[in-house]
Design a protein around this nucleic acid. Structure first.
Lengths: 218, 218
DNA sequence: CGAGACGTTGAAGAAGGTCAATGCAAGTGG
DNA sequence: CCACTTGCATTGACCTTCTTCAACGTCTCG
């Protein structure tokens, strides 16, 4: 029961068949509800079934950096030592499938193929984190927004090919890209004015000119 | 032959004994020489023996984001699909031990313990990348510099406990933190003026007030 | 010694942040 | 059904931080 086909470069490499998730229980998560918080013991690994989960770090003064958005088919909670270091919070109503960490580790210690799939899954997360770092560290607001839209386009689950659904608030995008909601908003309006995108139902972005968007991404 | 003890949170989890590196050949790298470049086929995994290797992404217009500094004991070249996506360049004269990728993959497919060590190694890199992302995405110049110094303090290879060696140029620090060399320089000067650090031989930073430095890091 | 690489410092400018007002749609309660 | 609230997005005016541009100092190495 694996969701829509996605590209390999999307965060959370698909572990595919044999990941033990056939036996997991499904948990329903409301918008803004936490799957787990920083400091919680790492009891489970989760596979997103539906919705979007934001992984984030919240600083003592309230600033927040979103590390990644996990989409259906992605895994969260992999590869951490001890307690969770990040928050995992749904940006919209979601479903996740849960597998006890202990079981996964137990299986992986006996099954090199599973262990290698875990290795690949975390490697893909690492690539995604580094791509984001480049964008945040070097890009202007426009470049960050443009490459964010392109990154999302590469993920699955869009009704039409040139329409990107944004199942998160402006504040989530801002916290992912190291900007403010105002800058996100202004930049999206600028892209609208340039006839590069069009905003459809509040949360759907239609890409009118993919080439120019790609150029703007740097 | 494993180098100075280091904390687990340092980038590049030590794979420890049994990583196959007993048989690797050692390669000497001059300052600013590349170990590999973006686009090169991924032929080897490298373990740093001596020096510091900067992993970076260079954009078409010359802007550069350093992803990580690899210190002795760290591994580079792990967990990538196909060709290299980043440059690896020595910031100072260094030595690396090389192991053919094919051999490592061959071994890992038969040895779950090795596969799990790879998994842990990449997981640690992921944690480091995310810590850096938080710093770059949310921190002011001062916060980025302060947490950079603290991060380096956590790595091994310092002669004295409160002296951090900076075996890289200002431009490397700037490209790691998403700042300019001028801002790096000014911020270090400010830290000097505040009597929190002291610069010893051009490249050695003595931490006079670790507590205040920690506060500034956020 | 002279040239190049690197670092520091200053002055001016720009990108993005902060603060504040407005709009808009979805609840909620009378 | 309508007034009121609440959450989110947009837009404008102003301000701060960091960048840019430029000059200068220092060190090393040919």
């Amino acid at each position: 029961m694996f969701s829509a086909p996605q590209t390999e470069q999307a965060t959370g490499f698909k572990v595919q068949r044999g990941d033990g998730f056939h036996s997991g229980t499904v948990r329903r998560i409301e918008a803004k509800e936490h799957v787990f918080c920083e400091g919680d013991p790492r009891t489970h690994v989760y596979r997103i079934e539906d919705g979007v989960i934001a992984l984030s770090k919240v600083l003592s003064d309230g600033r927040r950096q979103i590390i990644d958005f996990a989409y259906p088919g992605d895994y969260i909670g992999l590869g951490m030592f001890g307690d969770h270091v990040f928050d995992a919070q749904a940006t919209c109503a979601s479903k996740v499938k849960c597998l006890p960490t202990s079981q996964l580790e137990h299986d992986a210690a006996r099954d090199p193929a599973l262990a290698l799939r875990l290795y690949n899954a975390v490697s893909a997360e690492l690539s995604a984190a580094r791509r984001l770092l480049v964008s945040v560290g070097q890009g202007t607001a426009m470049e960050r927004i443009a490459s964010f839209l392109i990154e999302l386009k590469g993920r699955g689950g869009h009704l039409e090919d040139d329409i990107i659904n944004l199942p998160m608030r402006r504040s989530d995008i801002a916290d992912l890209l190291g900007l403010t909601i105002e800058t996100v908003s202004r930049t999206l309006t600028k892209l609208r004015m340039m006839r590069i995108i069009q905003i459809e139902n509040g949360n759907d972005v239609r890409i009118l000119d993919p080439d120019r968007l790609q150029e703007l991404a740097g």
